[in-house]
Simulated assay, not measured.
Amino acid sequence: MTTKPTAFPYTTALALLRAGEPVELLAGAHADSPLRLTSLLEALLTAEQLHASRRQIGQVTDILRRDQKFVRPGPPSPHLVRLRQQQAAARQAGNQAQLAYVKAAQQLVRSWALEVPARLAVETFADQWIAQHIPMDATSG
């Protein structure tokens, strides 16, 4: 059971924002201020980091799961110890990426003057808003 690696779905949008061409990018959203564009860029950058860290966690977990099937009794091999250390480092990086994304989502909500519905996490709302207003790449899955 391996996780299928997927590409970040907003790579084209990130490239357009970095190039300063947001006009073709936004569907129905008015990016009339630099603050709004900056907050959107930051949200997409941190979402990309979060996506990459989740992929890394999944890959290391899959390798560890596969290799632990054939472990003999006794102390763990140096290979398994290294994999567990990689898994812990990947999880820590994932937690940091999640925190950065939450902060970027809060800034996005503030700068775009969006109202987050009650009982909905700000990062979930930001995910939905981005999916609604930013076109995904055709090659993402």
Results as ranks from 00 to 15, higher is better:
R54N: 10
W112K: 07
A118V: 10
V122F: 01
G141T: 05
W129F: 10
Q107K: 13
R82M: 13
H51S: 05
N95V: 06
D62Y: 02
A131H: 09
Q92V: 01
I57H: 06
A13W: 08
W112P: 06
D62P: 07
L25D: 03
G58Q: 12
A93W: 02
Q107T: 12
A121Q: 15
T124C: 07
R72H: 09
A43Q: 09
V116P: 03
Q59A: 13
F70C: 02
P9C: 05
Q68H: 05
V60M: 06
T6K: 12
P78A: 14
V109G: 04
R119G: 04
L41A: 10
T11L: 11
H30W: 07
L40G: 06
T3I: 14
R84P: 00
V71F: 01
A47N: 09
Y10H: 15
T2M: 09
A131E: 13
A27I: 12
P76F: 06
R91Q: 11
E24T: 07
P9A: 06
K69F: 04
P75C: 01
Q106W: 02
P9H: 07
V60F: 07
F70L: 06
H30T: 08
Q96T: 08
R65E: 11
Q56W: 05
A90S: 10
A7C: 02
K103R: 15
T12G: 12
A93K: 13
Q85T: 14
P78R: 09
E48Y: 03
E48P: 03
P117V: 09
E123W: 08
K69Y: 05
A93D: 12
S111F: 09
G28W: 00
A47T: 07
L108D: 06
T11K: 13
Q86E: 12
R36A: 11
R65I: 04
L40M: 15
Q86F: 07
R91S: 01
A52T: 09
L44R: 04
L44S: 05
V109A: 04
S140V: 10
V81F: 03
P117M: 08
Y10R: 08
L114P: 00
A29T: 05
Q68S: 15
G20Q: 09
T3H: 14
P22S: 15
Q96P: 02
P117F: 08
W112T: 01
L45T: 08
E42H: 12
R18K: 14
R119P: 01
Q59M: 10
Y101E: 01
P75S: 14
P135I: 09
L80G: 02
H30F: 05
Q68A: 10
P135G: 06
E21Q: 13
I130T: 02
H133S: 03
V109S: 01
P78Y: 03
A138D: 08
A90Q: 03
